[in-house]
Design a protein around this nucleic acid. Sequence first.
DNA 1: TTGTAAGCGTTATCAA
DNA 2: TTGATAACGCTTACAA
Lengths: 335, 335
Amino acid sequence: MDRVDIKRLAEKLNLSTSTVSRAFRGNSDINPETKARILSMAKEFNYQPNHYASNLRDKKSNTIAIIVPELANNFFSQAIHGIERVAREKGYYTLIYVTDDEYEKEVMFIEKLYNGRVDGIIMSVSGEANDHAYLNKRGAKSIPLVFFDRVYDDIDVPKVTTDDYTSSFDGTLHLIEGGCKKIAFLVVNKSLSIGNIRMQGYRDALKDAGIPFDERLVIDCSNDYSKNYGILTEMLREQRPDGLFASVERLAISSYYVCHDLGIRIPEDIKIVSFSSLEIASLLNPALSTITQPAYDLGTNAAELLFKTLEGKTEVKDHIVLSSKLIPRKSSVVV
Amino acid sequence: MDRVDIKRLAEKLNLSTSTVSRAFRGNSDINPETKARILSMAKEFNYQPNHYASNLRDKKSNTIAIIVPELANNFFSQAIHGIERVAREKGYYTLIYVTDDEYEKEVMFIEKLYNGRVDGIIMSVSGEANDHAYLNKRGAKSIPLVFFDRVYDDIDVPKVTTDDYTSSFDGTLHLIEGGCKKIAFLVVNKSLSIGNIRMQGYRDALKDAGIPFDERLVIDCSNDYSKNYGILTEMLREQRPDGLFASVERLAISSYYVCHDLGIRIPEDIKIVSFSSLEIASLLNPALSTITQPAYDLGTNAAELLFKTLEGKTEVKDHIVLSSKLIPRKSSVVV
DNA sequence: TTGTAAGCGTTATCAA
DNA sequence: TTGATAACGCTTACAA
C-alpha cells in the first residue's frame, strides 16, 4: 500500500529493475513498447524514482542552494524568481536559505552544504563580518559558488552585480542638481563591498560638484528598524541635511517615518533618493525616487553562470555588471 | 583530496565506519575519547555525513516543502519565516516552491514530491482550478500535508487560517460607518475558499446595514496587474462606487494607481480597505487602511501542526483559526 | 533488448 | 565499547 519502489514495479511488470530504471532515463536502449508499459504502470501507481537513491548513486543532487540575507524584500524575491526560472529549465531544484543578515547562519548553511546536498550555491552575502576564510576551507572549493549583488571581493568566484558606482554617482548628482548642498549618505555596512562602492560614487559626485565630503554625514545604520529610527532622528535633528541618499531601501523607509514624525517635509525640506526595488515606490507619500536594480536579471545571470561552471563549460571567473535605472519621482523633485 | 567520506575518516583513525558513524548520532554507546578524536578529525577535514546516504538509509529526509503562490509578497515571506523558525528548531530543512498562482505548477510540484524528497508539505494553494483530486491519488496520502491561509475545503488535512469572515465583516462595516453606500468587493477568485468566505463577510455586513447586495459590485480580478488596471478602470467609471473592499493586497495597489490616474480622490471620493501585510501601508498616499493577518504566526502554527503529524503525536485534523487586525488609516477616514 | 550484480555512503543489528 | 555486515532504492557495466 505504501510507497511503490522500482522493485515492486518490476515484479508487477515481470521485468527486471534495470529495465524499469531504463524507462526513466533518456539515453538507454529499451523497447518503446516496454517503456510505454512501464510508464503507464508507473503513472497508475504514482511512482517516482526515489530522489535520494538516485542521487546517492549518481553523486549528483540536481539541486542548487540560494542563500540570501532576507526574503521580505522585493529585490531578493525577484532575484530568486530569476534564479528559479533558469534552474527549473535545467531540471534543478532550488533550496532557499535566509540568513537574516547573520554571519553565523551564513557560515552554518555553507558548512552544512558540504554534505553533498547541493551541486552549487548562489549567494548574496550577509556581510556582517569580515572573516571570509570559511569559504576557502577544505571542502568549500569542491562546490561551485556564485555571488550576486552583495559580494566578498576577496573571494575569487564568479559574480554578478550592478553598476553601483555609476548609479550612486548619478543619484547623488541628481540631488545636487536639485539644489542639495548637504547630502547625508545612509549605509548599513560601509565595509561591505556594496556599501563601500556606493559610497565612493557618492563621494565622487560631491567632489565633482565642489562640495566637501563630511564624515559626519555618512550614517552607519543597522538592520534593525527601531535602532535606525533612533539613529536617523538624531542625525536629522543635529545635522539638518537637505538631501538623503539611501544606499539601501529600508533606510529610505525609516527616513520617511522619521521625517513624517519630525514634520520635515519631503521634498521641500529634504530630498530623498534611494536604492530600491519597491514596486509601489510611486504610491508612497511622496513618491520615492529610486535607483532600481534589474533584480530578476541579476538572478538569471547568476544562475546561468553557475550552470556554466556546473557543466564544466569553462572555469568561469567572470564578473558580470548590469545597469540600474535612476527613476526620479517626487521625493527628490519640487514641483 | 575531494569529498571525505566516512570510510576515509575511519581509515585515518584506524577505526571502523560504524564507530565513526556512532560519533555523529546522539544515542549510541561510544567511548567519549574516541568520539572526541573522531569529531576533531572530522572537523579538520570538514566532513559532513552525506545527506543522501543517510536519508536513503533512514527513509527520512528531514526536509519539508513549503509551497506558496508567490514570494514577492510580505504575507508569504513572513509566513515562510515563521515556518522556517520552527523547522530549524526541529532540525529540518525547508524547500520552497513558488507556483506563481499556476495550478499546473502546483500539481507538478506535489507529484514530484512523492519521490521521498520531503517528509511533509505546507501549502497555501493557488486556487486557479477546481480539481483537487490529485491530492487524493495513491501516494498523496502517504505524505503529510498542511494548508495555511488559502485552502481547499474539500481536502481533509489540517489547516491554519485567519478569521476571514469576521474581519471582512468588520472591514465592510468600517466602510459603511464611514458613510459608504456603494461598496465594491474586489476578489481574485471567488470560488476559492478564501475569496468566498471574505465575500460572505462583506455580504452579511451589507445586509445588516440594510444595503442591498449588488452582483455588479463584485469584481472578479486576475493576478495580472495590467489586466486588473483595465478591469478596475472600467468598473470605477461605470459603477462609481464610494467604497472599495479589496480582498487581496494587490487589488488595493491597483486601485490606488487607477484612482490616481482617474483623479478619484481617496478617501474623499472613495474609501478603501484592504487585506494587506504591507509594512509600509502607513507611508502610502494616502495611508492604506488594512486588515492585517498574523502571517508569521500562521507560519509557525502550520509548521507545528505538520510536525505534530510527523511525530505521530496525533492524527491531527485540526483547523486553527487566528485573528486578523483591522487598522483604519487615512484611506478610509476623512479627517 | 533485457537481466544480473555491484556499489553509491550511511546506519542498525548483531556478534565479539 | 567496537567491528562486520546487510540493507536502503537506484543505476550502470557487463553478460546473456
